[in-house]
Design a protein around this nucleic acid. Sequence first.
DNA 1: GTCTATACATCGATAGAC
DNA 2: GTCTATCGATGTATAGAC
Lengths: 207, 207
Amino acid sequence: MPSTPTRRAPFEKSARTRARILDAAAAVFSDLGYAGTRLTDIAEAAGVKQGSLYYHFSSKDELVAEMLRVGLQKTYDHVATAIEALGPDATAADRVTAAITAHAEAVIDQLDYTAANARIVGQLPDEIRRQHLRIDQRPYGKLWDTLFEEALKAGEIRDDVDLQTVRLLILGALNWTVEWPERAKRSPSHVAAVLSSLLFDGIGSSS
Amino acid sequence: MPSTPTRRAPFEKSARTRARILDAAAAVFSDLGYAGTRLTDIAEAAGVKQGSLYYHFSSKDELVAEMLRVGLQKTYDHVATAIEALGPDATAADRVTAAITAHAEAVIDQLDYTAANARIVGQLPDEIRRQHLRIDQRPYGKLWDTLFEEALKAGEIRDDVDLQTVRLLILGALNWTVEWPERAKRSPSHVAAVLSSLLFDGIGSSS
DNA sequence: GTCTATACATCGATAGAC
DNA sequence: GTCTATCGATGTATAGAC
C-alpha cells in the first residue's frame, strides 16, 4: 500500500511562533524587568495564550535565558556588520567609533533585545546571570577588546591606560542610556559622536 | 493619687528601627531588584517580622520611594562634601574630578543606597519613577550641571560639546559599575582616575 | 500546537493579641 | 511597637480537550 505522500510539513510554524514569543519577551522584559514581567504579558504581546508558552519553553527562566542569548547574538551581529562595512583601510579609531555608534543604535532605538539585556542582567536569578555572563557575553567582550588592542598596536591610542576599564566605562555609558529621562534622549549618532570625541580627545580646552 | 511620673518616652526607638529598615531595604532592593524583593527579605535583614514593617510604612511602594529619596540625599551629601573639602582655590576641573571620585565611591563600595538607586530606577512602577525623577533627582542633576558650567566659564573645557549629554554619559558609566563582573571590579579611585583622564584628555595618542 | 481550566505556591496587606 | 495568623490576589506551572 503506497503511503499517502505527506504534504510538506510546515516545519517553520513552530519556529516562527517561537521567534514571535522571543520578540515579545524582549519588549516586555525590557519594560517591566525580570521579576516584574508576567508570562501573561509576554503571551499577550505575542498573540498567544499564557499556557501555550509552555509548548515552546519549559519555564520562565528558560525563556529569559534564551531571550538574552539571542539578543546578545543580534547585538554582536549588528556591531560586527557595522565594523566590516568600513572596509579594510579604515583606521583603528574609525572602527572603534563605528562600534560605539552601532552599540548606541542597538541600545537606543533598534533592538528591544539589547535594551532588555542592559536592563535586566542585574535582576536575574544567580545561576542564569552567571551562565549569561560566562558563556554568552564572552565573545562580545572579546570583540571590543580586539578593537582596542588594534588601536593600541596601530599607535592610535596611548599605552598608559587601563583598556579593560575603559571598555567597561564606554559600554556602561551606552547601556545606561536606557535609563535617561525622556527629555534628555538624543539620537544614537549624536550620543556616539559625543562619546567618541570624549574618548579620543577629551573635552579639556588645553588638549 | 499622684500619677507615677512617666519615664521619658524613647522617642527615638521608632526612628532607629525605621532607619534599620531603610538600610536593609537598600541592601536587598539593590540585590534582588524592585519586584524581586519580598517584604519578608527586608524584614529579615532588619531583624523584624514582615508584619511589623506596616507600623513604619503603609506599603511596599511607600517604603521603596522613601529608600530612594533618602539614598539620593546621602549620595548628594557625599559628593557635595567631597567638593567642599577641596577648598575655594581648586580648579573647576579638580572639582569635577572630586565629584566623579565621590560618586564612584558611593556606587561601588560605600552606599547600598546609591547602588540601589542605580539598579532599580528602571523597574519602578511608573508613578513612583516619575516622582523620583522629577522631585528627588533634580537637585543632584543641578549640582553636576553647575560643576560643568563653572568649568566652562573658567575656560577649562571646550565650548563645543553637549554638556548635558556628557554628564549623562559620565554618571551612566559610573552607575553601570554595579553590573561589572566580579573579576573586572576596580577601586573607586582607579575607576575615577581612568574616567577623569578620559573625560579631560581622551585616550588618543595625538592629543 | 494552541486552547481552557485549575492546582499550587507565593506575597502584599490586614486584624487583633500582647 | 512588634508579634502571630490569615485573607485575598496574583502568577507559575500542569492537565487534558480539541
